[in-house]
């Protein structure tokens, strides 16, 4: 087991968590994932943009929950028992993102990742890392850190956002 991991590291293999938004497959760096949990009711925040669903209690931390489906204008986001929240740990903050589902952990080497397209996907190309094909499925790799610290989500105060970018 440990041998296998060494082997992988030697070949610059990175692990990604793939998730589904609408009918597209995305993946993000698994090292920024804190945990995955089902969606539960949150406390709304006044004067926040619609994609910020509110905050919830994650073992004593008050954590904001962002619905990426609303942020990227996917019509009719539903909340059911399959709706998933991925808790991310980015820039010393914990943030939850709502997605339609989590599918798999994929291992990709650097040469398997090809440059991202600049059109045709929900994500702004600024926040994309690249494309990869796994089992004949196209997976879009998301630079989640960039997205969260960009100020695009209004998660950080403006002055702070500048410092962190």
């Amino acid at each position: 087991m440990s041998n296998g991991r060494d082997h992988m590291q030697a070949k610059d293999v990175q692990e990604y968590l793939s998730f589904i938004l609408s009918d597209e497959h995305y993946a993000l760096d698994i090292t920024s994932v804190k945990e995955i949990r089902g969606y539960e009711k949150v406390t709304p925040i006044a004067n926040a943009p619609a994609f910020i669903k509110g905050v919830l209690n994650l073992r004593g931390d008050i954590v904001p929950i962002i619905d990426l489906r609303i942020k990227f204008n996917i019509p009719n986001p539903t909340y059911n028992e399959f709706t998933i929240v991925i808790m991310l740990h980015v820039h010393n903050r914990v943030i939850g993102i709502v997605v339609d589902g989590v599918s798999d952990v994929v291992r990709l080497t650097e040469d398997e990742v090809r440059p991202p397209p600049d059109f045709g996907v929900i994500f702004d190309s600024r926040f994309l890392k690249g494309l990869a094909t796994v089992d004949d499925r196209m997976i879009i790799l998301v630079n989640i850190e960039q997205l969260i610290s960009s100020g695009e989500l209004g998660l950080v105060d403006k002055t702070l956002a500048k410092e962190e970018v």
Partner: peptide, 23 residues
């Protein structure tokens, strides 16, 4: 603190967790 993971919210000094686990 709300600022720890989010940002300051106007008119709100912080949050707390109620007995039922809600914020």
């Amino acid at each position: 603190s709300l600022e720890q993971h989010y940002r300051k919210v106007p008119g709100i000094s912080g949050a707390t967790i109620m007995g039922d686990g809600r914020v």
